[in-house]
Design a protein around this nucleic acid. Structure first.
Length: 326
DNA sequence: ACGATGGCCTGCGAGC
DNA sequence: TGCTCGCAGGCCATCG
């Protein structure tokens, strides 16, 4: 279940291998993995063969690799999303292949020689596509890359693939606008967890880190987003960042080898989870057993003592005032 | 316009 | 033992 930290581990692993790499061949074994590729853009294979990838960039859970035209940056990028079970693996040519291989790029790199980039995806929630780059709305770099201290080739490449443009910046992005996020959150008439999972508000958070952040901030997942006091919302955002940064430092969370980093080694960090998947175990803070509740055909994990449900309270005037458990 | 919901997928484990 | 069924949750089209 790759979320921001897992995708960043993949990005960082791919960056040195794909930057400057020439794509000499493309094999698509399952066209369902091209569901986000528009035929209007052209044939996927033809758009890639003979072009170079210039960098590895990430916004939230989206990855992309700007493509060159000749020796100069072009107007397109190879976009990858790992979905639930996607992996991007670097392999020596001739390596016997996994049965779930969907797409293979044959690569020739000026320093690293020939290798394969294998897109493996069991459940095909992920995808690859070639997409047009468009200018970012705020003029900042499109996403995170290792170039130029996190800004790809300076702000000159303030570009983002069209299909990623609607995705908000993630909370680790230097250009993430905290005020805009808090204002949008205050307008959201939905539960706080839904809002955290809404990639157009804030990106990179999935079910695992949503539960972990809410536990850390002691906020109930159904707390109305627009009733969360600004100070509490700011605390929650701080916890989101801490949780993501901690996971990143640990190399990403993994389950059942679904998530595998770029070299094929399993990630870890699952032993550090406080709430997600911890139902029945004592809350690390107060000892109350963690519970799991149905949520959006999924589940939420929380401490029923630390994370009390929101209760509206009537005032003397009869109006309803928000009460937020501390 | 915005919030909620269903569909896409398949390996695996629980339960009969 | 072998089968069925439900679960995992990313994103997006569609519905209300």
């Amino acid at each position: 279940m790759p979320e921001l930290p897992e995708v960043e581990v993949v990005r960082a692993g791919l960056e040195p291998a794909v930057s400057g790499a020439l794509i000499t061949g493309v094999e698509v074994f399952d066209t369902r993995s091209l569901k986000r590729h528009s035929a209007l853009e052209g044939r996927f294979e033809s758009l890639l063969e003979g072009r170079r990838m210039l960098a590895a960039v990430r916004r939230g859970k989206f990855l992309w690799f700007p493509l060159s035209v000749g020796e100069t940056p072009g107007a397109q990028a190879l976009v990858a999303h790992l979905g639930m079970s996607g992996q991007v693996l670097l392999r020596t040519p001739g390596t016997a292949e996994e049965g779930l291989l969907r797409i293979r790029l044959q690569i020739e790199h000026p320093e690293h020689g020939e290798f394969w980039v294998n897109f493996v995806d069991q459940r095909i929630f992920g995808s690859m596509a070639v997409d047009r780059l468009v200018p970012t709305a705020d003029g900042a770099a499109g996403g995170y890359s290792g170039f130029d201290g996190g800004r790809m080739l300076g702000d000159a490449l303030a570009l983002v693939p069209g299909q990623v443009a609607h995705i908000a910046r993630d909370p680790l992005d230097p250009a993430f606008d905290e005020k805009t996020f808090l204002a949008a959150l205050a307008r959201k008439r939905t539960g706080i967890k839904r809002a955290l999972l809404d990639q157009t508000l804030i990106s990179g958070i999935g079910n695992i880190y949503a539960d972990e952040s809410l536990w850390a901030a002691r906020v109930h997942y159904e707390h109305p987003a627009d009733r969360l006091p600004r100070a509490r919302a700011r605390e929650l955002l701080t916890e989101v960042r801490l949780v993501l940064e901690k996971a990143l430092a640990e190399g990403g969370t993994s389950f059942d080898a679904q998530y595998v980093n770029v070299n094929g080694a399993s990630g870890y960090f699952s032993h550090c989870l406080n709430a997600y998947g911890q139902q029945g175990k004592p809350c690390p803070r107060c000892g109350t057993p963690i519970v799991r509740e149905a949520f959006m055909n999924r589940s939420s994990h929380l401490c029923p003592r630390c994370q009390r449900p929101f209760r509206a309270r009537a005032t003397r005037a009869g109006a309803v005032a928000p009460v937020t458990p501390a």
